[in-house]
């Protein structure tokens, strides 16, 4: 059985927009993040579990609104009070989650095939967001995350790095095509390469 990523038929590798007379390092870089695991974790209201001792692959669960934790291969994003999204390249992350987060305290939902994720990297990455979202990203720093809208599409935004600025933008799979075109259209004026 073949796995088809949400943007498999949309994302084509190349150089686009205002890329001429620019160094490749100055261009935005856009890629689809696929073949990963995405889980939503919800802590029950009646649960008394102390989150300060809860770590996943050595990373703490963020309890402050708008913050995320992790590294390039694992992200834990705060979504709402007692709700997190876990994005991991580790195919066995579900076992780890089940071990750390018992079913008596947490509801775990596998969203791996229902989301599309685009990574936008480069100095103008935040300008791409500003062109389609009302979110104020002027003070956005590494390990900040937020849910917002981008041209009417609900998105989750996560800054995984600040040098160069690297954003993971996640939307529902059913909006993947429109979402990709909205992001790439906004990126044309800066010039971008797709990888």
């Amino acid at each position: 059985m073949n796995k088809i990523s949400p943007l498999a038929n949309t994302h084509k590798i190349g150089l686009y927009g205002n890329y001429e007379a620019k160094l490749e390092t100055d261009l935005l870089s856009i890629r689809e993040i696929s073949n990963i695991k995405i889980f939503q974790l919800f802590k029950y209201k009646m649960s008394n579990m102390d989150l300060s001792n809860l770590f996943l692959e050595g990373h703490k669960f963020p309890t402050k609104g708008g913050s995320s934790s992790g590294n390039n291969s694992l992200r834990i994003q705060w979504q709402a009070p007692n709700i997190w999204i876990i994005i991991s390249e580790n195919k066995n992350i579900s076992h780890e989650i089940e071990k750390k987060c018992p079913g008596s305290d947490f509801a775990i939902t596998d969203l791996s095939h229902s989301r599309a994720i685009i990574e936008v990297k480069g100095n103008d990455a935040l300008n791409v967001i500003k062109k389609g979202s009302p979110l104020n990203v002027n003070n956005f720093v590494k390990n900040n995350c937020a849910n917002s809208v981008y041209h009417g599409i609900t998105i989750s935004l996560d800054m995984i790095n600040d040098d160069p600025i690297t954003l993971n933008i996640m939307a529902s799979r059913s909006f993947a095509g429109s979402f990709y075109h909205a992001i790439t259209d906004a990126s044309l004026e800066f010039g971008f390469k797709t990888i």
Binding site: G65, G66, P81, L135, A146, N147, S148, V149
Partner: peptide, 10 residues
């Protein structure tokens, strides 16, 4: 109260 200042269209 959870996310801070946001635009009305959210």
């Amino acid at each position: 109260p959870y996310c801070g200042n946001r635009s009305q269209n959210e």
